[in-house]
């Protein structure tokens, strides 16, 4: 494992923990956090790590899989079940139609996968879903029109994770003999482009000192 991938995993973990700790500490998610995005991420981890008991890669991988599943489920649990956090969630702003995204990702996984097995189709599904899982969050930010520190940091760390993973792939492409993983790399590029778009508007709003407004 190279340093870029490790740093990518750590920023990914940081983004989730920041969100979880802040929701828990403030007992509120009234800061523009999309429950739909969080549920999609929990589903991403659950469907990707079906290989937890069948394919052993390393202790690091096995432990991180458990941590990612547990922390993402904890966020969803807080937002759905915690009496105070649940009250602070404004579902009228969280309007993204995630059903269509789920269906599209599943159909794409049925068509485009490495091997046609249950695990592999769901692995591909999780890769496609992760690429677009941030969309409800971006739509929510656009509708609520403000980005506070928590949400800013959260998206910042997620973006760093994506960027580091791309550097990791470039590094692996040049240092490994048979590094071909088109599904993960192309989906990863799409996902990073979504963040790049967000950061562009984030930067503009910061530079002009105006409220963040994302185009419709």
């Amino acid at each position: 494992m190279n340093i870029f991938r490790f740093a990518g995993d750590m920023t990914h973990l940081m983004s989730i923990l920041i969100l979880l700790l802040k929701i828990y500490a403030t007992k509120s998610c009234a800061v523009g956090i999309s429950l739909k995005t969080q549920e999609l991420y929990a589903l991403v981890f659950l469907t990707r790590y079906l290989d937890q008991f069948t394919d052993y890669v390393s202790l690091y991988n096995s432990v991180m899989k458990v941590v990612f599943i547990a922390s993402s489920l904890a966020i969803v649990w807080c937002m759905r079940r915690h009496p105070l956090v649940r009250k602070s969630y404004d579902k009228d702003l969280d309007t993204f139609r995630h059903q269509y995204v789920l269906l599209a990702c599943f159909v794409l996984a049925l068509l485009l996968h490495e091997i046609f097995t249950f695990q592999e189709v769901f692995w591909a599904f999780s890769i496609y879903l992760e690429a677009v899982a941030i969309l409800p969050q971006l739509v929510l930010l656009q509708r609520s029109g403000n980005v506070d520190n928590l949400t800013g940091q959260y998206v910042l760390f997620l973006g760093a994770y994506r960027g580091l993973y791309i550097i990791n792939w470039i590094y692996r492409y040049f240092t490994e003999d048979h590094f071909t993983r088109w599904i993960a790399c192309v989906s990863g590029l799409v996902q990073t482009a979504l963040y790049a778009d967000f950061f562009y508007y984030y930067y503009l709003s910061w530079k002009t000192n105006t409220k963040l407004k994302l185009p419709a």
């Binding site: 991938r5 995993d9 990914h12 990707r48 290989d51 394919d55 890669v57 390393s58 991988n61 991180m64 899989k65 990612f68 490495e114 091997i115 592999e120 692995w123 993973y165 990791n168 490994e176 003999d177 048979h178 590094f179 071909t180 993983r181 993960a184």
Partner: peptide
Amino acid sequence: QDQPHSHDEL
């Protein structure tokens, strides 16, 4: 040797 279906990343 790299196996295409071995997913070693998270």
